[in-house]
Design a protein around this nucleic acid. Structure first.
Lengths: 199, 199, 199, 199
DNA sequence: CATGAATGAGCCTTCATTCAT
DNA sequence: GATGAATGAAGGCTCATTCAT
């Protein structure tokens, strides 16, 4: 196994543990065990716990971004892209919810790592920004709004709504109506939106 | 000073320190110093560091919610309420940004406490939900959308956009166009929104 | 209440707590509460926790010695005095056993305070020594043995046997045959003792 | 050095320190220093200070019991066994007295650990009980007395007398007349004992 | 006098990091 | 390279003692 592959092994183990316990509560030994290696070996690949954490988060973000790009590339028009993004977020949040539930008392840690997801959002914003800019030029999105504002509307709405649905709904009622979600973003929540509809 | 007032004193100090350093990096001694009392005194009022943290966060949330309720109560129609909410969020985020900047290496800790703001969002959602429900019945908002979805759109968009503006803009360009923000939420980001406009 | 009476109040409270918890596990506050006074008040009467402990132990020893003297004075010949002493010890040990049982985890503390009883023994030895010396001169005890040795035989046997009986017997079988105990001490445990018996 | 050997090393160091300072006044660091290792290393071998203490005491008791068994096994008749036991106790008490004297203010701690010796006594009782039972069946000891009572007489007398001699005598006069000690136990302290003697 | 809120020295314990094997 | 035994810095928490009321 090459050095790079080994690092990835450790990243995978570290993601698991960091996400379920948070930075401080995670012991290097936990990660080593999870990766099936010795404690000292971790230090052959990473300078310190903090560096490992930073790189693990970066690795995580990169994975997320790559997956998102793939997911968006499959669709042509912006509505479909938004829907794809919402489905993607649902999956990510669900994965982490699962991790959190493993922990009985994950209050503090959930907080800490929850914020990593926030960070992801910022980065996803950059990916979406491209799609948004393109959609504006194609006449799919309002040209009179700052592209960043449109991106924020999409991102914010999706994150907020999906989190809510997953975290606070009973498992069987977690069905999210993605079409309506896209509709709310595209046509707005104001009453005029439907009074003016052509169809 | 009554016991309750003293606890509030400690809450204020604890908020400061917890928000700038995060839970784990905060030493009880730090909080005591900030409050101008001895280390042992903290333990006269709180069982443990964790309990102090939990109660401090609850205290913080309560303050936020109270302020938000006041801010919303000053306005009649939903557009103004959204604008008020956006201005309120701007202020909160600015305050925390300020705290983070005090710390040299606040990356990790910022993550942790950033999530507390997320938690606030969930709670703010409940406050907004009332306003939204009322606005729907007054015909200001679309009745065909789940109220929770509308709330998420407002909350998510505002949080995302304001965070972005404050965190990544140069100070002098932090001007946020609140009216446009409200417009994006109310009329949507899709191109139809403006093609159908009456004026 | 005079200063001396108040000190005695505190001694009584302190005995209770010290005997059930040991020196280190006892908090001044425990004693204050037990005595029905404030923590600070204890310091009006005693310099420090250690001093309070030393004086409490001395107070305890004095009480024991006084009671023992009274118990012994009631009897004329040495056999009866030994029996009286054995009954006295049974009572003391029972009292302390009771205290220990109040505590869930009294292992360590029992050790510590158990030794105070040992100390009592040394002092009781001095009281018994007088009775022994007198009994020797009255021809009741062997004149060819060092009085201290006789005292040790009485004290040691009684303490050991009574402790055993009380600590490790089922409550209902705690009956101690005091006459046989005295007999063992007076006539010895060797087989000759009975082969030579006159009766 | 094997794990078990290392634990024994720590036991030896811990015995030293616990016996001279008592449980509470002993710092883990003291033990580590005495054992020539780091503070954290102690925790590689023992869960907590309390566990280390309990196991150290058990280790001590085991050693004492083993040595006692060896000492008793060397002799045939019960008189010699009692003498051997008395010499054994003298040695143990002398060792601990030495430790106590190292400490200027060992009053409190001496108490605490002195009680460990008491505990030893209880265990030694079980060992002696065997020898006593055997001696009864061989006709060396009175069959009309409860074996436990005989054991208590031996144990109690020896412990009490030897402690007294060692603790309160000037070093040069510590000579203990073991034969007379055995005689007191075997023939009793009553005057009849000698009036009935055959010789 | 009596009180108990305030204090901070002190210690157990954890765990990132090192390094001999 | 890989390992895990050894280390000691660091921090939460306790409680004897003080002192303002």
């Amino acid at each position: 196994m090459s050095r790079e592959e080994k690092k990835n092994e450790i990243f995978r183990a570290a993601s698991q543990v960091f996400f379920s316990k948070g930075f401080e509560k995670t012991k290097i030994e936990d990660i080593a065990k999870q990766a099936g290696i010795g404690k000292g070996t971790v230090y052959e690949y990473f300078e310190s716990k903090l560096q490992l954490f930073e790189e693990t988060i970066a690795f995580y973000h990169q994975n997320v971004i790559n997956s998102l790009c793939e997911a968006l590339a499959r669709w042509e028009n912006i509505g479909d892209k938004i829907k794809a993004y919402a489905q993607f977020m649902t999956e990510i949040i669900s994965n982490h919810i699962h991790l959190f539930e493993l922990m009985a008392d994950s209050r503090v840690m959930a907080r800490e790592m929850g914020a990593v997801i926030l960070e992801s959002n910022i980065r996803m914003g950059d990916v979406l920004l491209e799609a948004v800019t393109e959609a504006i030029s194609k006449g799919e999105l309002r040209p009179d709004l700052e592209p960043r504002l449109i991106t924020s509307t999409i991102l914010g709405t999706v994150t907020q709504y999906c989190s809510l649905k997953i975290m606070f709904s009973e498992p069987e009622t977690q069905k999210i109506d993605y079409d309506r979600l896209v509709d709310a973003v595209m046509r707005g929540v104001g009453a005029e939106a439907i009074s003016n509809q052509t169809s």
